[in-house]
Design a binder for these strands. Sequence first.
DNA 1: TTTATTCTTTGATCCATGTCATGGCGGCGG
DNA 2: CCGCCGCCATGACATGGATCAAAGAATAAA
Lengths: 253, 253
Amino acid sequence: MTHIDFAYSRDSNTQTNGKTDPAGEIHPCSACTVRTLTVCAALEAEELRRLAEILQTTRFDAGHTVFGEGDPAETLYNVTSGTVKVYKLLPDGRRQITGFLLPGDFFGLSVNDSYAYTAETVTPVSLCRFPRRRMEALLDEFPKMQRRLFSMASNELAAAQDQMLLLGRKTAKEKICSFLLLLSQRASRRGHKTNPVHVPMSRADIADYLGLTTETVSRTFTQLKTSRVISLLEGNKVQIQDMDDLLDLAEGA
Amino acid sequence: MTHIDFAYSRDSNTQTNGKTDPAGEIHPCSACTVRTLTVCAALEAEELRRLAEILQTTRFDAGHTVFGEGDPAETLYNVTSGTVKVYKLLPDGRRQITGFLLPGDFFGLSVNDSYAYTAETVTPVSLCRFPRRRMEALLDEFPKMQRRLFSMASNELAAAQDQMLLLGRKTAKEKICSFLLLLSQRASRRGHKTNPVHVPMSRADIADYLGLTTETVSRTFTQLKTSRVISLLEGNKVQIQDMDDLLDLAEGA
DNA sequence: TTTATTCTTTGATCCATGTCATGGCGGCGG
DNA sequence: CCGCCGCCATGACATGGATCAAAGAATAAA
């Protein structure tokens, strides 16, 4: 997950998706491109150039469905800015969010020809799109890229196992603490402020990620606030009072 | 998951691990080798030959810990026969089994240098071992193998997401039904009898896989038996009365 | 600014599942 | 053959988190 700064910039076939494009804010296409490419650090210049060729960028408003479960999987995505949630549904509407994706994360990989989950934006988002066919061709050509994607998949798998432990065996309080810790760690890894953590998603989303209800999430937050483990700040920020405390609480120690 | 029959056989550096080797039953080393290699179908003869060179086979009794969470990750394993469970623990002993591995499945892949979970045999098991370093070298040499491993990781990721949905949002009854369905499907995919399903693991293991207690698992089984959805047969076999019924029950429809 | 609308918090109550306890059954060693 | 031990089943009871309900906050619309 090294974010090597890579001084490569080239306008690619940028497409500012109009469907729900919000007003204001200029769309820095080449910046997005560079950002995504740096995720593929350790690639050769040639590989980066080829990647940039097939990549397009898109923007979406908050609450926009990027693709639905079962849709034909034709595109691989990389988050450039904002937060995306991916989830699965049961027939009666129960929902499990399996991940929140932050800048640098890929999604939309599929083994079959259709997506196994739905992807929806949480905040306004910009994405890089890689047409699947062309991406596959590129992977065949550059084993190093494939290797990198494989290593990313392995990381995701490890994260998924942590999440299973959380869903299957942790209490509500442990779940919330683990979640805050996760956000903090991810912020740190991407070089952001780790302590007042930014929590861009709603209580309902948090609930569906942790296998709880919004009510329980809300109650647990106030409980943690009352016991001075955290405090809730303006702008969806959460201040962690004692990181070690939180770490213990997250594992029931 | 194509199990192409591949007429390749060669005695590799087989090592019948003595530590807990049970009596009886001859260990068919070349058979195991072939079996594992066929999992890597679509590989060239040359690749298979090289794989066979670095592969060793081992046997373990039921209840043997193959490796523990945090151990240095030096070996990649492939199950040749038997069932293996992998799990994670919380400090106070709560356990989440993240998967049961059947013949053909790989485990022990690690992004860091240490395993992220514990692997323990459920039944007597034979395994193929691939030394990590040599395996990595081989992957670099044969992109097709890496591609295959990547595709397997993607499949696992999809399975993990299904499991998250199960753990976070399904009821006890739905969990048990999903579990039986999963076993049945996996049996079918490996060409075994799918209906009286063989369930080699204990109630406790099932509970820790589904995020339940043994009591609830037990009760739910009898409940399903009473409502004539399944019946319990000799030798840890479960007869599914109506597959469609079970399918509905597994998703709360 | 006022009014809808949606999100969050909080309270009261309920229930699915956990916890604790007990007995049966089957395998295995002596 | 008997007694031990680990699994499984079942009952009685407890409880964490769900559900139902409703009152604030925040945000968007008018």
